[in-house]
Design a protein around this nucleic acid. Sequence first.
RNA 1: GCACAGGUGGGUGAGUGGUUAAAGCCGGCAGACUGUAAAUCUGCUCCUCCUUGCGAGGUACGGAGGUUCGAAUCCUCCCCUGUGCA
Length: 410
Amino acid sequence: MSIGFRIEVRAGASRAGRLTTPHGEVSTPVFMPVGTLASVKGVSQKLLEELGVEMVLGNTYHLYLRPGIDEIRSLGGLHRFMSWPRGILTDSGGFQVFSLSELRAISEEGVRFRSHLDGSTHLFTPESAIEAQIGLGADIIMAFDQCSAYQVEPAEQRAAAELTLRWAERSKRYFEQHKHQVPWSKSQLRQESRVSRFEEGSALVPPLDGAGPPGSTFAGQTQALFGIVQGGIDPVLRKESAERTRELDFFGYAIGGLSVGEPRALTREIVEATLEYLPWDQPRYLMGVGTPEEIVEYANLGIDMMDCVLPTRAARHGLLFTSEGRVSIKQAQYAGDQRPLDPNCRCQVCRRYSRAYLRHLYRSNEVLAQVLNTTHNLSFYLDTMRAVRHSISAGRGTRFLSEVWSRAKP
RNA sequence: GCACAGGUGGGUGAGUGGUUAAAGCCGGCAGACUGUAAAUCUGCUCCUCCUUGCGAGGUACGGAGGUUCGAAUCCUCCCCUGUGCA
């Protein structure tokens, strides 16, 4: 017994639950911001805590290249390295098989990447990807998979799904043999938990005697491994992939290989077709999704976990999500606009700054633009998910983003 | 006053007789972004008209003239800027 998941309320297909990890509890459905390089771009860990972020992503491939797994492990693991006391989930590098497709070669053994940093080559195998993730010490780690593009031929899609299944088995086997090698210990966990109770930069303040944070009663010290279902846009292949992944007995199951260029209606179809064959009482993680509308929709379909770079990347590019739709803050129409970005949003950015100012910061290429824009977008996503959870807990589903925000209006 | 070096589209700056309405960069206006090679990428950016097209006209490289079939590019004069010398 290591890490736990408990469904507390069900409403239709949706469910609200609790994921217990060695680094705190996570209320599901959860949206996890992406912090590829041990940083959610543009925002501090302190702010993430204030926003109520309970789990962030890290990326094995990128952290392996820089600063290196050994360095992070020797510094006590990723949590301690990045001073993040709450949950972390690491992706295995499987997505880079897709996103860095021009810099890699796939074989049965694994994937050989050519580093975008210095051109050196690196072989990633299911074993090495798990070894690296144990070294990083995330609470949830992912099997090494082959994420393939939407356009690939059905035969190739099947081959990718089959390969992913064989790699899943190897991932699982390696994990079971080595999972005790996590870089954090019980005593370290207690120490980290205490630090999280204080303001950033106040490490000299003595810890409260024996006090742990709420939810620090972790059930064990090991990580949890998720399997990833592939299969492209073929429902039959998805079903088979889901069933065979399930046979390998993972702690949770992810739906991968979506949001890679396919039409959105198709994404939803495949998600539904896949969910049907995943165990209902275990965590289900839809990888790489999505827009505010989509995260509401998928939570409603029974997805427990989602992550996406969209809120953070779009923020840095001047695209902001609001209860009234999208705002491209760089547009000329916001010059002189004194209104808050989103009148229904209570985040610190919307409470304090005007659209005119946010536009000015963006156009002036001020770093503060990235900070504020990211703060708002993450806040909006987190608020949206919170509202969805409340809605589910109240025994009703919430199907549309507009419903979420019409209830939230002051 | 003399001697050099210059004056190019919103800015900067290429171009030194012929696909040059004039490169590139910046600025401006839009668009894209979904397990992050992304503070990135793409398109448009003189005026008018239309069947929005490697479309048709019109303007345009300090000013005025000139040479030439053809000038941002060559010549003359003028105006202006920078540097040096008086």
